[in-house]
Amino acid sequence: MSERAAAGGRGAGTRQRILDAAERLMAERGIEGVSLNEINSAAGQRSTASLHYHFGGRDGLVRAIMQRHGPWLRDRHEELYAELARGGREAEVRALTEVIVLPLAEYLALGPSPRAAIRIWASALNRPQLAVEEVQHLVDPALTEASRRLIALMEAVMPRELAVERLFLASQSALHLLADRAALEDAPDSRRRPLPLPLMTANLVDMTVAALTAPVGEETARIAAAVFDPAASA
């Protein structure tokens, strides 16, 4: 093996160790709850030079974690959306909701690293400085299309702005609930006995569908009219 190849192999190994350490610690404490020095030490590095060389800093680590796990979820989103399209179910709220929720729940069952990723994604969505590039690693064409169709169905009975907000809040809530389940799966001393994951997932889909399709109350409609169409409500 040449010196260049050996150096490349060592560099790849160092990058992997840093990424593994960041993934584990950020899942446990949140993206902002762990220092780069702690990540560096957990990866067995003497200085942060390698971390900055490979990732540039905290945001680069978060993007690398998303890139590491994104392909599996993208493929599963595409698979589920293709299935519902073949079955002519593009106008079914539950089928579209399953495209959003099921891949995350299924990924959670694949082991500690996928569970860590889900916890980090939930933490990432709470970051006020969340960059567009980071969001793009969470969204793929099939997920975008399922969301677009859901909003189109919802805006038949509510303002589009309200439909968009409902979908965002419902999706974020589902992600946080799955992140909580991921943490519970990895807790060594938990006394809580959770539902079997398939039952928890089906129930979560039910809850999300209910949130998206709940009737708009009179007070909500009045306030929405004042916010989105003040001239008409005057």
Score class of each variant (00 low, 15 high):
S2C: 08
E3K: 13
R4C: 07
R4I: 15
A5C: 00
A12E: 13
Q16G: 12
L19E: 08
E23M: 12
E28Q: 11
L36D: 01
N40H: 02
S41L: 12
Q45E: 15
R46D: 10
S50I: 02
L51Y: 05
Y53G: 01
G57A: 05
I65C: 00
Q67H: 10
R68E: 11
H69T: 07
G70I: 04
W72Y: 14
R74W: 10
E79S: 09
A82W: 00
A85H: 03
R86C: 09
G87D: 12
G87Q: 13
E90D: 13
E92T: 03
R94Y: 09
A95Q: 09
A95W: 03
A105H: 07
A105G: 15
P112Y: 04
S113N: 10
S113H: 07
I120T: 11
W121Y: 13
A122M: 00
S123V: 03
N126L: 15
Q129L: 12
Q129D: 15
E134N: 04
V135N: 01
Q136H: 07
H137N: 05
L138S: 14
D140G: 12
P141D: 03
L143R: 14
L143G: 13
E145Y: 01
A146T: 06
R148S: 10
R149V: 05
A156V: 11
L162I: 05
E165Y: 07
R166S: 04
L167R: 05
L169C: 11
S171L: 01
S173W: 11
A174W: 02
H176G: 04
L178M: 14
D180Y: 04
R181N: 03
R181W: 05
A182F: 01
L184E: 13
D186A: 14
A187S: 14
P188S: 06
D189C: 08
R191M: 09
R191W: 06
R191E: 14
L195S: 15
P196Y: 05
M200P: 01
T201V: 11
N203P: 00
T208Y: 00
A210C: 08
L212A: 12
T213I: 10
V216A: 05
G217R: 03
E218F: 01
E219I: 12
T220E: 15
A221W: 00
A226I: 03
A226N: 02
V227E: 11
F228A: 06
S233R: 10
